[in-house]
Simulated scan of single mutants.
Amino acid sequence: MTTALPTRAASPRLASIHDFTATAEIAAPQLGAIAPPVASTTRAAGRRAQRRLGPGRRIPYALTLGPALLIAVWAVASATGVLDPRVLSAPWTVVVTARDLIADGRLLSNLLTSAQRAFLGLALGVGLGTVLALLAGLTRVGEALVDGPVQIKRAIPTLALIPLLILWFGIGEQMKVLTIALGVVIPVYVHTHAALRTIDARYVELAETVRLSRWQFVRKVALPGALPGFLMGVRLAVTGAWLALVVVEQINATSGIGHMMSLARSYGQTEIILLGLVVYGLFGLASDAAVRLIERRTLSWRRILAG
């Protein structure tokens, strides 16, 4: 006791620190008992607000609800006579026509030809767009050489190049695949290049701090950072591939869904034309769903970090 009193008197600041520490030790169990409920309450309120204001839980088979509603309206309008069958065939007529064309093998043969054209053009366009985006996004020299011509091509519709492509490559498969590829390059390039140019500066500083080499930076920082933009570009490119296919298959084609539709137009067979449109739409819907599935699986780490 005789030694403690002079110490408190000689060092009032030290005494205040001791008093604060003792108070904190006494209050710690009470704070520990209060803090978890407060934190859990805050998290629960945040989840409730997200459910109320955000997208909420995914609806089962949501991708098919819109097309199903459209078909239902079409069927009702046909059954009630609102739609003249000479102008627009009924859904059941299209189904019967599809069954007949499948039975004689014409639909499957044309379907395979169209799918081959679309996927060849898509693969060529995605590959070329990715290479150009990497050149322009990772080097200033590449951006100076590549970005200008690509932006010029972006301002020129792909379909406007068809006459020139016919002069250069004829009306064969080469022209059709190249037309599809040119329609695919631009969305892949634009979104991948933008993603490369907007990588968080903190990641760049971190790479410099840990002294990553140029190749390590590209592999571990630039490419993963650009992946969301690349996948968004691929989603748009898939749609562009099918849009270009619809056009090129009606230019002196001897096979494919577009060729089948052109013949049907000559004979006024609206059910075959509608069947071709349905096939194109289903192909586009399935392709977009596949890319979205890849996007969900590949970018699952973003949801983990957000959670």
Rank of each mutant, 00 (worst) to 15 (best):
R43M: 15
L182H: 01
S16T: 11
P85V: 01
G129Q: 00
L112C: 07
P6G: 14
P187S: 08
T113G: 15
P91M: 01
M261E: 02
H259L: 08
I34L: 12
Y280F: 15
A118T: 09
F283N: 07
E208D: 15
R197H: 09
A15I: 03
L164H: 06
M232S: 15
R99F: 15
V210Y: 11
T130R: 00
Q151W: 07
V246M: 04
I171V: 13
E173G: 05
P157G: 08
L182Q: 01
N110A: 12
S40Y: 15
L69D: 03
A28W: 11
L206F: 09
E208G: 09
T130V: 14
R99Q: 12
L206W: 06
P187E: 01
T2Y: 04
S266F: 14
L53R: 12
L167S: 08
P36F: 13
P157F: 00
E271I: 03
A103M: 04
Q116R: 14
P149R: 02
H18D: 12
L31S: 09
A237M: 09
L161V: 03
L277E: 03
L236T: 04
P60T: 08
S287F: 09
P36I: 05
V177Q: 00
G233W: 03
S300H: 10
V38Y: 14
I71P: 01
R99M: 13
K220I: 10
R43N: 11
T254H: 07
F230I: 02
E271F: 11
L161T: 00
I199T: 07
G142I: 06
G281P: 08
F283W: 05
D147R: 10
T209P: 05
I251S: 10
Q50H: 11
G281V: 04
L138C: 02
L263G: 11
K153Q: 13
